[in-house]
Design a protein around this nucleic acid. Structure first.
Lengths: 272, 272
DNA sequence: GTGTAGTTTGAATCCTACG
DNA sequence: GCGTAGGATTCAAACTACA
């Protein structure tokens, strides 16, 4: 196992199987054009980007201000989204694909901007949770889904990777649909500190990332994640002989991510 | 049964249980503020189809190539969307809710604009089809879903109608989730002419509309649909003792819609 | 009437290599 | 870039034909 944590990335180090510590905008600028085969991004969902809402240790930085100007908030989120998507697009190989996950709070902003930037959507995929949090007040439907957008850089891209037959195998030999059923991340897979506190508030289930990777990459492809968190994307890539480059601002998350590579997860390799 | 087809709407006629012939922008302008309890809208999706598509058995797919689905650009589609949404918002009661259905082609445009206009999203609901069209070429996941956005006029609205207990009844007494399972509209429910040709290329399944109405309206509420087509929304409303106002440009669709009220559909009242 | 086999079809941004 | 030829590609439900 040769996984690098890069604290001061100078733009020259080999970034295969590495986790770069730093702000994604700063670090992405150092990377040369068109080197990634696939991108998975799990950007922040909250609209109050000006103040980061949570610290790694879960303490709330700021209460949500009711007097917040909603329009300004969307505008700030849009600027942020456009900025990282433009930079990611530069780093994608010509026939690379990109996945972005989000909820109804942000996915319409993200999808709209992706289309504006020329990305061509291949599918919207719906992660349907077997065990979502109920709506405690009974005033809405249980929010049991998250949405992934799968896209290529532009309309003309034809030869992107889609492992059609591989996907069929995981769906009783019928072609895989865009509704995916996975439980939320908990149990032995969920990273927790000695006090039982979750390390990351939105850790994604490994089987979800495995399906993403098995569907849209080949062995030894280089996978990129600009908001890596505890690096579920890297773990999934590593399990399936893909290479990865992760960027994560919080070193706290990265140190936990590194532990994952030395741990034998009890979760099945690819559960449905 | 007292259902009116209004050919020359003068803005004064009682519009309960009526179908107005005309362009939705023109006709909506004649309607006074804040009179509808709920809105359901199935706008054009802006599919942007490129070439003809053939099944593996060489038969041609009957694509949606209607003139009403053609837009020159995202910008043109956005302008159209913003325009009808602004007008609809004016017609909604203060605590009314709105549903908009779409696919990945347009739903990100719609959701983004709704948020920009101040609508506050309550849920995204995913219609998961039991019998979608496959992806014949095997280059993407089967597109087996459509998305509905459910929203109120703005963030502050609290006392909107959500029939929580009624919904529980249809979900084995568990709280209803945002993943809904219905087949596509075909069989005896699908309107066809004497030659077996579809009357409308995108007729929605009645059970979907029934769930929308049972979830978000009370008896005798007034339901509005600006893109009524063959008026599935009206049929669902009528079945459940709600009133309706429909606007539809194509009189051809309306005349078929009127026939529906005299026909005893073989479909169950509310199937899951 | 019943049962079985074969046919049709659905909001679709659906190919690739080569000259 | 474009045009064209070659070749691989589908699932569930409703409907029709026929025994």
């Amino acid at each position: 196992m040769n996984i690098k944590k890069i604290k001061k990335f100078n733009g020259k180090t080999d970034i295969a199987n590495s986790i770069i510590v730093g702000d994604c905008f700063v670090e992405m600028k150092k990377i040369k054009d068109e080197i990634f085969d696939m991108v998975f991004a799990d950007p922040p969902y909250n609209m109050q980007l000006q103040n980061e809402l949570y610290r790694p240790n879960k303490t709330k930085v700021d209460a949500v201000d009711d007097a917040w100007d909603q329009f300004d908030s969307f505008d700030a989120y849009d600027k942020f989204t456009k900025k990282w998507l433009m930079e990611v697009k530069r780093l994608m190989k010509k026939n690379a694909t990109i996945w972005v996950i989000g909820s109804y709070h942000n996915i319409f902003r993200v999808g709209n901007i992706m289309q504006d930037l020329g990305f061509w959507i291949l599918n919207d995929v719906h992660w349907i949770k077997s065990n979502p949090m109920p709506n405690f007040k009974g005033v809405r439907f249980t929010n049991a889904t998250e949405t992934l957008i799968w896209a290529v850089k532009d309309k003309k891209v034809k030869n992107y990777t889609f492992n059609y037959e591989e996907m069929k195998k995981y769906n009783r030999n019928k072609q895989m649909r865009n509704d995916w059923y996975f439980g939320i991340c908990n149990g032995s897979e969920r990273l927790r500190d000695n006090n039982g506190q979750k390390i990351h508030s939105t850790q994604k289930p490994l089987p979800l990332l495995e399906r993403v990777i098995l569907a849209s990459t080949k062995e030894s492809d280089l996978v990129f994640d600009p908001f890596a968190g505890t690096c579920t994307t890297a773990v999934a890539a590593y399990r399936h002989q893909r290479k990865f480059t992760m960027i994560e601002k919080e070193e706290f998350y990265i140190d936990w991510a590194l532990k994952r590579f030395n741990k034998n997860f009890q979760t099945p390799l690819f559960k449905n």
